[in-house]
Simulated assay, not measured.
Amino acid sequence: MSFDLPRNIILPVDAVDVRLDPGPHPFERDNAQAIAENWRRETVANPALFDGTVVLLSALSYRDNSLVGRCHAVRYSTFMLWRGNRHVAGAEHAYAHAMLVAGDNALVAIRMARHTVNAGRVYFAAGSFEPTDFRDGLVDVDFNMIREVREETGLDLAGATRGRRYYALSTATGTVIFRRYRETASADEVAQRISAFVAAEAEPEIDGPVIIRNPDDLPDGLMPHMQPLIEWHFADKD
């Protein structure tokens, strides 16, 4: 299967069949020394890094409006080496975005804190899939979305209105799976709630909320994959 999906186009996704393979990822198995050496450099530059567990794809395809793939649990240090060598065959990254839509149709994103790997970058609250996001070996995308938004912003999207399907955008840097989550409160009200949560955290993951009111209202530090998602939203797709 390997990686077989259209790139740089937003795709409708009715099902995500990405499964967790209990075996080691070939990239981690074959690069142990390089992973250790790179991790030493990374932690010297940023001592706040933690070598937890995330997942890395070994295959992903798009067919019949479904994403079908295979991934493996890897150490974060493995992910960091891959991150600097994204052209490596046989390994790619997928992650999920809860596209937070306020009652006034503005989007609410976040800016990452200075101690994080993506310091200062703006995107929707999100994180890599972790083994806890899988149910009987199958990824639960909405669980990941809700968990990451809660951890980073304090918001609970469990009761929010969800878009009727997922969408995906695959680029050279990875594949983002996204879905609208609609709040009834205005963007300013949602941002105030996030700011209050951040102020109460000892070491928050984010600096705070970023409101995007139209496709020309693009903040500094916006991650490249975000612009097509923003344009898609304000073009009233779905």
Rank of each mutant, 00 (worst) to 15 (best):
29 R>Q: 14
160 A>W: 15
10 I>A: 03
201 E>H: 08
75 R>I: 00
176 V>H: 01
212 I>N: 00
45 A>Y: 07
232 W>T: 09
43 T>G: 03
192 Q>I: 07
46 N>I: 08
94 A>M: 14
168 A>H: 04
66 S>C: 15
106 A>H: 14
199 A>K: 14
35 I>W: 03
81 L>H: 00
217 D>M: 02
95 Y>L: 08
224 P>K: 11
4 D>F: 00
41 R>A: 12
202 A>C: 04
196 A>L: 10
90 G>K: 02
69 G>V: 06
50 F>K: 15
7 R>N: 07
125 A>N: 01
128 S>G: 12
183 E>N: 05
172 A>F: 02
111 R>L: 02
96 A>C: 12
33 Q>N: 10
93 H>N: 14
123 Y>W: 05
34 A>G: 09
142 D>T: 11
205 E>L: 14
117 V>D: 07
188 D>T: 06
58 S>H: 03
161 T>E: 15
123 Y>C: 11
224 P>S: 13
81 L>P: 01
155 L>N: 08
12 P>A: 08
69 G>S: 09
74 V>M: 07
81 L>M: 03
2 S>P: 04
153 T>I: 05
65 N>S: 08
32 A>S: 08
68 V>L: 13
122 V>M: 10
32 A>N: 02
237 K>Q: 12
142 D>S: 12
207 D>L: 11
193 R>E: 13
16 V>G: 05
27 F>K: 06
55 V>N: 03
98 A>F: 01
124 F>W: 03
77 S>L: 01
93 H>G: 00
94 A>G: 01
155 L>T: 08
176 V>A: 02
149 V>A: 07
100 L>C: 05
142 D>E: 15
116 T>W: 13
106 A>E: 02
63 R>Y: 05
31 N>Y: 09
96 A>S: 14
153 T>C: 11
197 F>K: 06
215 P>N: 01
141 V>I: 15
219 P>Q: 07
116 T>F: 10
187 A>E: 04
68 V>N: 10
206 I>F: 11
11 L>N: 06
64 D>T: 02
36 A>V: 04
191 A>W: 00
94 A>R: 00
36 A>P: 03
156 D>R: 13
188 D>Q: 14
212 I>R: 01
